[in-house]
Design a protein around this nucleic acid. Structure first.
Length: 275
DNA sequence: CGTTACCCCTGGAGGC
DNA sequence: TGCCTCCAGGGGTAAC
C-alpha cells in the first residue's frame, strides 16, 4: 500500500475529518514497531488539537498544537501499515497496534509486519527529528528536477534504480514507482547512475513527477475508502506497465517483461524499450 | 565515502 | 491437511 502517493492520498482523506479536532487520548497495544512507541505518549497527546496534517517522504506528520506547547506525531506505514477511521469503541483486531482517539472517531493503525512507526517530536520544530533529519528532496517540490538529479548522482556508481529508492537523495519513490518511472523514461534500471546524461535525467524527473501525480489522482477514491472503516471491499489495484508483470508483454513493444534482483528487491523492466 | 549483506516481522501463495 | 520455501509497496546498520 504505502509509497508516496498512497501516503499523500491518506493525508488528504484524513484532513477533512481530523483537522481542528481535539485528541482525547491514545492507545498503545504494541509498544514496539520499528521503533519503540514513546512512553507516555497517551498522556502527552491528550488535550492537544490536530491543527494540520502534512507529509514528509512517507511519513504522515500531525501538527498537534506544536507552536503552543505541543509537538508532532509522525506515522510511517512501513510495508504493510494502514490507517482507518473507525467509530469509538470499535473492537481492535489482530495487528491493530495504535489508536489516536477523538471524541467522535478513532484513527487506528494496523500493521501486520510492524515495519511502521509511531514517533513523537516535542516542540515547535519537526525537521530536527532523527527520522526526518536525513531525508532528501521531495520529488513533487520545485527543488526536484532533472538537472538536480543529474548533479546529485555524479558520484553514484550504483545502478540507477536503487539510487532512486535512496531516501537520503529523493524521498517517497518505492519499488513500484522506481520501476514505472524508469520504464516511462526509457532508462534501464541496470544503468549506473553516474553514467546517465542530463537529457535522460530530465526525462526521468518528468517521468517520476507524472507517475506520482497520476497515481495520487487515480488513488483518490480507493484510498479514501481505505481510510474509512469499510476497508477490504474492492481493493484498488494500480495498473502498472511493468511492475509485477514478469513474462507478460511490454505494453509498448510486446516483448516479455524481465525481472531481476537488485539490492534484494525485484526489478521489472523491458530490456527492449529501456536501455 | 559508496556499496553490500543482512536484519527487523507476519502472512499469503505455491510446491511437495 | 501439513510443512516447506519464497515472496512482499520499507528502512536501518554493520562491515567491507
Amino acid at each position: 500500500m504505502p509509497e508516496l502517493p498512497e501516503v499523500e492520498v491518506s493525508r488528504q482523506g484524513l484532513l477533512t475529518y481530523l483537522t481542528g479536532r481535539r485528541i482525547v487520548g491514545a492507545v498503545v497495544r504494541t509498544s514496539k514497531l520499528r521503533h519503540e512507541i514513546p512512553v507516555g505518549l497517551d498522556h502527552r497527546l491528550s488535550g492537544l488539537t490536530v491543527e494540520a496534517i502534512s507529509r514528509r517522504g512517507k511519513y504522515l506528520v500531525f501538527d498537534c498544537a506544536a507552536a503552543r506547547g505541543g509537538g508532532w506525531l509522525l506515522i510511517h506505514l512501513g510495508m504493510s501499515g494502514s490507517l482507518r477511521l473507525v467509530p469509538p469503541a470499535t473492537p481492535a483486531q489482530k495487528h491493530d497496534h495504535f489508536d489516536l482517539v477523538f471524541p467522535e472517531t478513532v484513527l487506528r493503525l494496523r500493521d501486520p509486519r510492524r515495519f511502521g512507526d509511531v514517533l513523537w517530536q516535542d516542540g515547535p520544530v519537526v525537521d530536527c527529528h532523527p527520522a526526518l533529519a536525513t531525508l532528501g528532496v521531495e520529488p513533487l517540490s520545485d527543488d526536484f528536477s532533472g538537472d538536480w538529479l543529474h548533479a546529485a548522482t555524479r558520484r553514484r556508481r550504483m545502478p540507477v534504480k536503487p539510487v532512486l529508492m535512496d531516501n537520503r537523495l529523493v524521498v517517497g519513490i518505492g519499488n513500484i514507482y522506481a520501476a514505472e518511472s524508469l520504464f516511462l523514461a526509457g532508462i534501464s534500471p541496470l544503468r549506473r547512475a553516474d553514467q546517465i546524461d542530463l537529457e535522460h535525467y530530465r526525462r526521468l524527473a518528468l517521468a517520476i513527477c507524472s507517475t506520482l501525480r497520476a497515481s495520487i489522482a487515480a488513488g483518490g477514491s480507493s484510498v479514501r475508502d481505505y481510510v474509512h472503516s469499510d476497508g477490504g471491499a474492492g481493493c484498488y489495484q494500480l495498473s502498472c506497465a511493468v511492475y509485477g508483470r514478469a513474462g507478460q508483454p511490454c505494453p509498448s513493444c510486446a516483448n516479455a517483461v524481465q525481472v531481476v534482483r537488485q539490492a534484494g528487491r525485484s526489478t521489472f523492466y523491458c530490456s527492449n524499450c529501456q536501455c
